[in-house]
Structure formats: structure tokens, C-alpha cells
């Protein structure tokens, strides 16, 4: 059997979902038999490859960079998985939506007692006015709620996807789990 090409990406999230992924522990070896990790914060690969079977997306879409990334990823992925509450609901990153992006920037860059307070210009990507869950931006095939989803949930969903089954997500997780 050919190995499936798996990618994981990290948009606006805390990396907790990736940590939970690693919590699969020794069962990672079982998965490793069936997949190649072709792109991930966990591996040293700078550009998103062309043909990916499954991509797990952690985090909400908050900045212009997130937006471009997710559109590119969608175009090159067969099964796109919203991985964790930030990707599924917007979660904590979306808390800023009711106050607006500018007040967040102001709080971070202008209000603290800095020597030369200024808004960042080049290095930090511009914030979108509204933080969105991934499915509000591109089509999502599978949603795994949870903050983070438990290692067991991740293992069972990824295993199912690898063997071509449609995964049973909601029996083991929910928003905020």
C-alpha cells in the first residue's frame, strides 16, 4: 500500500493541537507506517508541496498571511481537516472580533510603556478585520472540534482517514473539549 501524504499547518492557534497530536505517543509509529509527513511545523520543509492527501489545519484565519496560506493549501489538498476549535469555530483568536483588530494592536503595541511605541509595518502580517473559522474561507472536509482534541480522538480520526473511512468525530469530542 502506498503511503498517504499528510501535512499539518499552524495558522492562528496556540500549537496546543499539534502538542496533542504528539501526545498520540507510541501510536505515532503505527501512523508513520501509513503516512509521509510532507509539511508541518514539526518538520523542516519550507514550501507547501503540490499534492497532499490530508492536511490538518490548526488555528483560525486571522491575518492576510493566514488567508493566502489556506487558499494555497486548499488548492493542493485532497482532504482538508479543520483541526481543533480555533480552526473549527474561531475560538480564542476570534474573541477580538467584538472589539475589532485595531484595538488589539493598540493594546499590544501602543498602550504598554514602550520607548518608541509604533504599529508594526513589515514583519508582522496585516490583521484581517474579522477572524474566521477555516470553513468560512475555504471548503473544509472534516471538522475535529476540541481545545485541543484529545490524542485518542486525533488518532482515531487520522487512522480512519488514512484507511479511507469517513471518521466518527462527534462520539469522542465537542466544542471546548
Amino acid at each position: 500500500m502506498t503511503k498517504k501524504r499528510l501535512a499539518t499547518v499552524w495558522l492562528d492557534g496556540c500549537s496546543g493541537c499539534h502538542m496533542s497530536f504528539l501526545d498520540i505517543d507510541e501510536r505515532l509509529l503505527l501512523l508513520a507506517d501509513k503516512l509521509d509527513l510532507v509539511y508541518s511545523p514539526l518538520v523542516d520543509q519550507k514550501t507547501f508541496p503540490d499534492k497532499v492527501d490530508i492536511t490538518l489545519v490548526e488555528g483560525a484565519v486571522s491575518s492576510e498571511e493566514d488567508l493566502h496560506k489556506i487558499q494555497h493549501i486548499r488548492a493542493h489538498t485532497r482532504i482538508l481537516v479543520a483541526f481543533g476549535d480555533c480552526a473549527v469555530t474561531g475560538n480564542v483568536p476570534s474573541l477580538r472580533n467584538s472589539v475589532g483588530a485595531e484595538s488589539v494592536l493598540r493594546r499590544a503595541y501602543m498602550e504598554p510603556d514602550l520607548i518608541n511605541p509604533q504599529f508594526p509595518t513589515d514583519v508582522i502580517p496585516a490583521l484581517l478585520p474579522v477572524v474566521r473559522p477555516v470553513h468560512a474561507v475555504v471548503k473544509v472536509d472534516v471538522h475535529i472540534p476540541g481545545c485541543p482534541p484529545s490524542a485518542d480522538t486525533i488518532f482515531s480520526v487520522v487512522s480512519d482517514l488514512l484507511s479511507g473511512k469517513s471518521p466518527e468525530v462527534m462520539t469522542s469530542t465537542h466544542f471546548g473539549a
Binding site: E102, L105, T121, A126, L127, L128, P129, V130
Partner: peptide, 11 residues
């Protein structure tokens, strides 16, 4: 059609 917001991105 992506964003229905009238506002611009914020830097």
C-alpha cells in the same frame, strides 16, 4: 466573495 466585511485589513 470571501469576506463580506466592508472594512479593510488593519496594520
Amino acid at each position: 466573495a470571501l469576506y463580506n466585511d466592508t472594512k479593510e485589513s488593519v496594520r
